[in-house]
Design a protein around this nucleic acid. Structure first.
Lengths: 194, 194
DNA sequence: ACCTGAACACCGTTCAAGT
DNA sequence: ACCTGAACACCGTTCAAGT
């Protein structure tokens, strides 16, 4: 059960807590600049903290990423719930897909982590990714019940599509990502005008 | 014009030629084991050659990759030509897409290189990728002329789809890659049953 | 309880010196 | 003309020693 203590823990020593926050802030900047494969040493450096301190707070790059994305991924789950209230199941699905793709685009290289973490149960990002997938599942269920998506489409398909499109966008352009997403979603519709 | 001398050059010294071949053979093995981001040092080591010798033959990882993939990418261009002879423009397109996806799956991490090299004119893989894209363009032209693909779809769309699906497959499964490819191609068809 | 920083093992890349 | 291998600058990760 790989868990980084949820957020700045209550019973943390003052200096520890300060270092924790500094590391998160530095990671945010460095990931934004160089993508999620950026140097951990640089993050520690920029946080003004020793090498090993980073590791003691975040045993793994994924753990750091998880802490950094926690709120955002929670928000994505909330978004899924809200979209279920839309009158159109179709718009709910495309809205969710766009939101999930936007999330996968926050840092360069993030799509890889999100895609591999859903498979890897030992990843510190696994639980958060599963929550996202569960949100997508509910959206998809409704879309299928409404007949706007083929019955053989799975939530994993949608998850994979969203991340693959985000990945393609990293290599080319945001527009290309959106086009790929559109083609994929379109291809998930039932055969005839139904 | 970044070009690695085409294949084992005629006027190469005997020892140079031997090292060139050994490096290629080693790279093939190491890339197959660890993906295209594998250690270049290990390739040199396995080839029984000094560090700098690798760099003198292949100034860049992409140059090494290009030499390694040259025949395969040529074959892919040939395949495009052959597929144009199929009676069905539709089958030609799906056949080409599958062949291109299979190619992008030869080594782990290859899809990234193929996708970024089409954009980056300084990449040693750029020309080969452009040739592949040109093949896809001809296949696509015919599909659009036959009305089996929407007119606003571009060869870049198909290229991106193929590589994105291959990438997704690397992270999950071959089956997932094929499903994504199918959805994407399906989504490129004209709106109604036409 | 937490932090530090050295230590280790590994990279990519360059380049003077050799043959 | 080509090869060698040391040199440099950079990593991730661990862990004894400190406070």
């Amino acid at each position: 059960m790989p868990t980084t203590g949820p957020a700045p823990q209550r019973k943390m020593r003052a200096d520890a807590r300060r270092n924790y926050e500094r590391l998160l802030a530095a990671a945010k900047d460095v990931f934004a600049e160089h993508g999620v494969e950026a140097s951990l040493e640089e993050i520690a450096r920029r946080a003004g903290v020793a090498n090993g301190t980073l590791y003691s707070h975040f045993p793994t790059r994924q753990a750091l990423l998880e802490a950094l994305l926690r709120d955002r991924m929670q928000a994505l789950s909330d978004t899924a719930r809200e979209l279920l209230d839309l009158p159109s199941a179709d718009e709910a699905l495309t809205g969710w897909a766009r939101a999930a793709m936007a999330h996968a685009t926050v840092y360069r290289g993030l799509a890889v982590s999100l895609m591999s973490s859903i498979q890897d149960e030992t990843s510190h990002l696994h639980a958060a990714c599963q929550a996202v997938l569960a949100g997508g599942q509910r959206i998809l269920d409704r879309a299928q019940a409404s007949g706007v998506v083929r019955g053989d489409v799975t939530a994993s398909d949608v998850y994979a599509l969203v991340n693959a499109a985000a990945w393609a966008g990293e290599q080319t352009s945001r527009a290309q990502a959106e086009r790929l997403l559109s083609f994929g979603l379109e291809g998930m519709r039932p055969p005839v005008g139904g």
